[in-house]
Deep mutational scan, measured.
Amino acid sequence: RDEMEEWSASEASLFEEALEKYGKDFNDIRQDFLPWKSLTSIIEYYYMWKTTD
């Protein structure tokens, strides 16, 4: 399955904003920016995001 497909463009930009603010503190990212996403989903997205450019 492709996690990228499940993320909207606005969620992707929220994620990048959160990453700038918190770094890899995924709990804070989830709490402040993406509370409707699971922690697992955020972490999986991060690793996919990191490996695609």
Rank of each mutant, 00 (worst) to 15 (best):
R1L: 11
R1Y: 10
R1G: 14
R1N: 15
R1D: 08
R1M: 13
R1V: 14
R1W: 12
R1K: 13
R1P: 07
R1F: 15
D2T: 14
D2E: 14
D2M: 13
D2W: 09
D2Q: 15
D2A: 13
D2H: 09
D2N: 13
D2Y: 00
D2V: 12
D2I: 11
E3P: 07
E3Q: 08
E3Y: 15
E3R: 11
E3S: 14
E3M: 13
E3F: 12
E3W: 01
E3T: 15
M4V: 08
M4W: 05
M4A: 04
M4E: 08
M4D: 06
M4F: 05
M4L: 08
M4R: 12
M4T: 07
M4Y: 02
M4C: 09
M4K: 05
M4P: 07
E5V: 04
E5K: 12
E5D: 09
E5F: 05
E5I: 10
E5P: 09
E5A: 14
E5G: 07
E5M: 10
E5T: 04
E5C: 09
E5Y: 12
E6T: 09
E6A: 14
E6C: 00
E6I: 01
E6H: 15
E6Q: 11
E6D: 08
E6S: 09
E6M: 13
W7E: 00
W7I: 02
W7N: 04
W7R: 04
W7C: 00
W7M: 00
W7T: 01
W7G: 08
S8H: 04
S8A: 04
S8P: 01
S8I: 07
S8L: 01
S8F: 00
S8G: 06
S8K: 04
A9T: 09
A9E: 12
A9I: 09
A9G: 04
A9M: 01
A9H: 10
A9V: 08
A9S: 09
S10C: 06
S10A: 11
S10G: 09
S10L: 12
S10Y: 11
S10F: 10
S10K: 14
S10D: 11
S10W: 13
S10V: 10
E11D: 15
E11N: 01
E11F: 01
E11V: 04
E11K: 06
E11R: 01
E11P: 00
E11I: 00
A12C: 09
A12T: 10
A12M: 13
A12D: 01
A12L: 07
A12N: 11
A12P: 02
A12W: 02
A12I: 11
A12K: 15
S13R: 14
S13W: 04
S13H: 10
S13F: 08
S13D: 09
L14H: 00
L14M: 04
L14G: 01
L14P: 01
L14W: 00
L14T: 02
L14F: 02
L14V: 04
F15P: 01
F15S: 06
F15M: 07
F15L: 04
F15H: 15
F15Q: 10
F15R: 07
F15I: 02
F15A: 01
F15D: 06
F15E: 04
F15Y: 00
E16Q: 12
E16D: 06
E16F: 08
E16V: 06
E16L: 06
E16R: 08
E16G: 01
E16I: 04
E16Y: 10
E16N: 05
E16T: 04
E17D: 07
E17R: 09
E17K: 10
E17A: 05
E17T: 05
E17G: 03
E17F: 07
E17V: 06
E17P: 03
E17Y: 08
E17W: 03
A18Y: 04
A18I: 00
A18H: 01
A18C: 09
A18V: 07
A18E: 08
A18M: 05
A18P: 01
A18N: 01
A18D: 00
A18K: 06
A18W: 02
L19Y: 15
L19I: 13
L19F: 15
L19Q: 09
L19C: 00
L19S: 04
L19W: 13
L19M: 10
L19G: 12
L19T: 06
E20A: 12
E20K: 12
E20P: 01
E20F: 06
E20H: 07
E20V: 10
E20N: 09
E20Y: 07
E20C: 04
E20L: 11
E20Q: 07
E20I: 09
E20G: 09
E20R: 11
K21Q: 04
K21L: 07
K21D: 06
K21P: 02
K21I: 08
K21M: 03
Y22P: 04
Y22I: 13
Y22N: 04
Y22M: 03
Y22C: 14
Y22T: 05
Y22R: 10
Y22F: 00
Y22G: 05
Y22S: 07
Y22H: 12
G23E: 02
G23D: 06
G23M: 03
G23L: 03
G23P: 02
G23S: 03
K24L: 12
K24C: 14
K24Y: 09
K24R: 11
K24E: 11
K24D: 11
K24N: 14
K24M: 08
K24T: 15
K24G: 10
K24F: 00
D25E: 12
D25N: 14
D25M: 10
D25R: 15
D25G: 07
D25C: 12
D25S: 15
D25V: 02
D25I: 11
F26S: 00
F26A: 02
N27Q: 12
N27V: 10
N27E: 15
N27C: 09
N27G: 08
N27M: 07
N27I: 15
N27W: 05
N27L: 05
D28E: 14
D28T: 15
D28Y: 14
D28P: 07
D28A: 15
D28V: 15
D28L: 15
I29L: 08
I29H: 04
I29T: 08
I29V: 08
I29N: 15
R30V: 15
R30N: 13
R30F: 09
D32E: 15
D32M: 15
F33L: 11
F33R: 07
L34S: 10
W36I: 01
W36D: 05
W36S: 05
W36F: 02
W36E: 01
W36K: 10
W36G: 07
W36A: 03
W36N: 10
W36V: 05
W36C: 03
W36Y: 05
W36T: 04
K37D: 04
K37G: 02
K37W: 02
K37V: 02
K37F: 03
K37P: 01
K37N: 02
S38Y: 04
S38P: 06
S38M: 11
S38I: 05
S38C: 00
S38E: 13
S38Q: 08
S38H: 08
S38R: 03
S38K: 02
L39Y: 06
L39G: 01
L39T: 08
L39A: 05
L39K: 07
L39M: 06
L39N: 14
L39D: 07
T40L: 02
T40D: 14
T40E: 14
T40N: 13
T40C: 09
T40V: 04
T40Y: 06
T40K: 14
T40F: 01
T40W: 01
T40G: 10
T40H: 11
T40R: 12
S41N: 06
S41D: 13
S41P: 14
S41E: 14
S41G: 00
S41I: 00
S41V: 02
S41Q: 10
I42K: 01
I42H: 03
I42L: 05
I42A: 00
I42V: 07
I42G: 05
I42Y: 06
I42N: 13
I43G: 07
I43S: 09
I43A: 11
I43D: 00
I43T: 10
I43N: 04
I43L: 04
I43F: 07
I43W: 06
I43E: 15
I43M: 12
I43Y: 09
I43K: 14
E44M: 00
E44N: 14
E44R: 13
E44P: 00
E44A: 07
E44W: 00
E44Y: 02
Y45A: 03
Y45T: 08
Y45W: 06
Y45K: 02
Y45C: 05
Y45L: 13
Y45P: 03
Y46A: 02
Y46Q: 03
Y46L: 02
Y46D: 00
Y46F: 03
Y46N: 01
Y46V: 00
Y46E: 06
Y46W: 05
Y46M: 00
Y47K: 15
Y47V: 04
Y47C: 10
Y47S: 14
Y47G: 12
Y47R: 14
Y47T: 15
Y47M: 09
M48K: 13
M48W: 10
M48G: 10
M48L: 10
M48P: 02
M48C: 12
W49I: 12
W49T: 14
W49L: 13
W49P: 05
W49G: 11
W49K: 15
W49A: 12
W49H: 13
K50P: 07
K50S: 10
K50C: 09
K50N: 12
K50T: 09
K50V: 14
K50R: 09
K50F: 05
K50E: 09
T51D: 13
T51C: 10
T51L: 11
T51P: 11
T51K: 05
T51M: 06
T51I: 08
T52K: 14
T52H: 08
T52P: 12
T52W: 07
T52C: 14
T52V: 11
T52S: 12
T52L: 09
T52R: 13
T52D: 10
T52N: 14
T52A: 11
D53R: 11
D53F: 08
D53K: 13
D53T: 08
D53L: 05
D53A: 11
D53S: 01
